[in-house]
């Protein structure tokens, strides 16, 4: 699965640790999602979408398009 998390984070000038705290996950989890090593659960994906005030599908895609 692909995502735009790194870009969205950079736009807000947040560090991985800052984003991790806002999502209530570890910095390693944010890094793993950004690098595509971990696909977040549906619950976490929705938390991310809510934080960036965007629909989930604008942040995550299955890489098919």
């Amino acid at each position: 699965m692909k995502n735009r998390l790194r870009v969205l984070r950079a736009e807000r000038e947040w560090s991985q640790a800052e984003l991790a705290g806002r999502l209530d996950v570890s910095r390693q989890a944010v890094n793993a999602i950004e690098t595509g090593k971990h696909d977040p659960s549906l619950g976490l994906a929705f938390r991310i979408a809510r934080l960036f005030d965007m629909p989930v599908e604008e942040i995550f895609s299955d890489g098919e398009d």
Partner: peptide, 18 residues
């Protein structure tokens, strides 16, 4: 971090988690 000398709320939570 939102600023160099003032950690944002996320960073404070991350430090607490660590």
């Amino acid at each position: 971090m939102t600023s160099d000398d003032q950690p944002g709320p996320g960073l404070r939570k991350t430090r607490k988690r660590r």
